[in-house]
Design a protein around this nucleic acid. Structure first.
Lengths: 201, 201, 201, 201
DNA sequence: GACTAAACGAGACGGTACGTCGAGTCTTTGT
DNA sequence: ACAAAGACTCGACGTACCGTCTCGTTTAGTC
């Protein structure tokens, strides 16, 4: 998180602006992971970033937009779409990558923040975040259909939701432990459901 | 603080105390539904309940415990366990009842509040809330096993989770529209998964 | 400054409100005398008064109105109107009392604050402050007219202004030293001017 | 306003520097006249002068010295000493010229700024400003003494103060209206006082 | 039915964080 | 190499809400 700041600095020009922006967003994510959204203080973020509060407010209108920006930045990483050759392998790879994100303190914090409604400024980020991952994953199913692993009527979006739902259920409603077994179960649920016609469009 | 709750609820009149308590908890839920947890202020709750702020603080130590109590109270309603004679019917009834709760403004607010972590005082409530519903539902699966509809190795808890996951996914990560079609899909996913061995313990 | 706080507390009822109000106004005058209006900080006033900043803002809308109130309070002391039997004695007594006020650090600070225009909230206080002293003093001249010491055409207000003008000139434009000699000169100027017909209405 | 400053600068340099200096000082006076000292911001002055804030800070150490400089510049105009042939005529001319200055928005602003104590950097300017006018005017009285219009014991400085005091009283403590009648009264007060021996040294 | 003890209403207070503004300093960039 | 542009630090402003406290008044339960 902080390591690539140097890189950013080196690569993307060297502007103080860019450096400050990166430092603040990093600090925001760190605070988010440590204390959660409710307890996140602009002053603390600023101090952690080695920057004055005023500087933060010069770039972001308020706490919410600061967090929104930090989440967006964090979420803008590439979403790798696996292509292992068969549906189960692809879904397993996808679920594993989701799980690895959800197992990060920051990942958990991001999800928790996005899910806490009542933050009108964050709904856009949320929609984009989950929507993109969603859309990015549908080719997996389309390829499976093309290979004949799944009937053509199956709804790709539904398969992805069915795959992710148990993971998020564990994180948000359960005890938060996302392990190998859970990933495996999610994969088998999705495959079974898809084959059974439950996910036909 | 909490001990006489049972009595209070049983009688629902008693003295001024009971009346005040009920009014404040109601107001808390209403505010929660209208504005969400973050924007809920004790002053507003008190005003809405026709009570002084001091009175609220006399009974609840802080905002968090007030909300925790309100959620607990709301969640203490009986959880009806359907028994329609076959697994699919039971699951459908269960999912429908879940969906009807999630379609209430208060229901949504409760779930949103419980899910927003970082509120250490609420994790107990959350665990109790989802845990109880969970446990209450496992007999459905046990009966299905007894009827031979499902293999005996199936994990009842996993079935219930698989049933609810798509609904909560829609509420928390999706667009929030929980309709008939979604319920139906959840049922078919759960049944297919259970039959496929994906939910074996 | 601070000494009479005790008294206030003991005498004027005992309400916390009254005590706080008095302490804050005292502190305001003290800060004003020490550092002047521009450097007066609400936080410093609060700290000096042993009170929280918020408490100050709960009673006064802003810095300006706080100062306005403090000045008004300070200025609300009785204005003793001398009656020594002859005009010169009366004017000398009046000028001496003015001079004694202007020789106080607080007196200087008050005048300096009132005179610094650009504070719309203070013009009312200013008008009241000087206007009242003005009006209060005119009987002195009226009595002198009645005694035949001055012609009836003389304008009482003009006499008072002529008396005070050299004092304020010294304070505001000169070196600030208001001494016996200056008072004496002011008295003689006013008498000479009044007798000469220069102050006829 | 700006034209004669060129001349001043013309002597010293004449380049961009001089132009910038003049523009900033002009803008300072304009802001002072419009909003007063307290509300004068360096940013506004810079913007008005079509210059960057940094440029202002390169030439003047702080707000105070900027204003001090602007006031000094403004005050450096020649003080015409009338010589009408008799004391009353001279004093009338002097008072009229004072009044005409005090009736300018900038004139009022300058006086108000100089009078607001608590600005250590301005006391020098103030002393110079009033002192010079003071000294410049004493020849008027000396001539009157030479002509036998006034006794030789009269203190020239006291006469000038007595003349100006009512004008400044009106501006600073009164309603601010400096008219013909007031000028006339000031003249008559000063003459009467001087003749009466009240202003003897 | 009176009387005491508990609970309530009213409202001020200390405290923390918010988001804003202006003074004065320091860095980056363009010429 | 240097100065304009602009970003930064610092400190104060005025606001909102939390949770505490005091004091008088009302109400409930007991004798």
């Amino acid at each position: 998180m902080t390591e690539n700041k140097q890189v950013v600095q080196g690569v993307r020009t060297g502007g103080r602006s860019a450096r400050v922006r990166a430092a603040v967003l990093d600090a925001t994510l760190a605070e988010l992971a440590e204390s959660g959204y409710a307890a996140l203080t602009v002053d603390n973020v600023a101090r952690r970033a080695g920057v004055n509060k005023t500087t933060v407010y010069r770039r972001w209108t308020d706490r919410e937009s600061l967090v929104a920006d930090a989440l967006t930045e964090w979420a803008s990483a590439d979403i790798p779409i696996p292509d292992t050759g068969d549906l189960e392998g692809d879904l397993r790879a996808l679920a594993t990558s989701m799980a690895s994100v959800l197992d990060t303190p920051i990942g958990r914090a991001v999800v928790a923040t996005l899910v806490s409604v009542g933050n009108p400024g964050l709904v856009g980020v949320k929609r984009r975040f989950f929507g993109e991952r969603h859309r990015a994953a549908t080719p997996i199913v389309e390829r499976a259909v093309a290979r004949g692993e799944l009937p053509p009527e199956v709804d790709p979006a539904a398969v992805i939701v069915t795959l992710r739902a148990p993971l998020y259920d564990r994180i948000l409603l359960g005890d938060g432990v996302v392990d190998e077994a859970l990933v495996e179960r999610a994969v088998r649920i999705a495959v079974a459901a898809a084959r059974s016609g439950a996910l036909d469009r």
